[in-house]
Amino acid sequence: MSLYFLCFILFCVGLYSVLRKRNIIKIIIGLGIMEYAVNLFLILVGYRMHGRAPIFAKDQEILNMVDPLPQAMVLTTIVIGLAVTIIAVSLAIRIYEKYGTFDITKIRSLKG
């Protein structure tokens, strides 16, 4: 149980970084931390003590295996996270090009 809470603390660290930091790059890193906290949680959900990977192998019988579905989900989430990070990073590069800063308090041409 304590593992789940540690996972949740990691999630909160990421959320803090997204909400409180002013630097765009730190915000993107915070997103990554949040994402990986959820991935870790998914893996923990499917884990079973002393279980092994559910892969069919020669001359072996699998008695105690971990749940493969969360692992497949995590693979998908990693790809999605990659796409989001790429979009965010390329936007950050472009923003730096136009505004000359990474500080979100100084990037304010839109208001209202």
């Binding site: 997204v18 997103l31 989001v84 979009i87 965010a88 936007l91 950050a92 923003i95 136009k98 839109l110």
Partner: peptide, 15 residues
């Protein structure tokens, strides 16, 4: 510049 700023805001909130 405005598009990029709006898109960045949207990306972070959406993510």
């Amino acid at each position: 510049p405005q598009n990029l700023e709006a898109a960045f805001k949207y990306t972070i909130m959406g993510a």
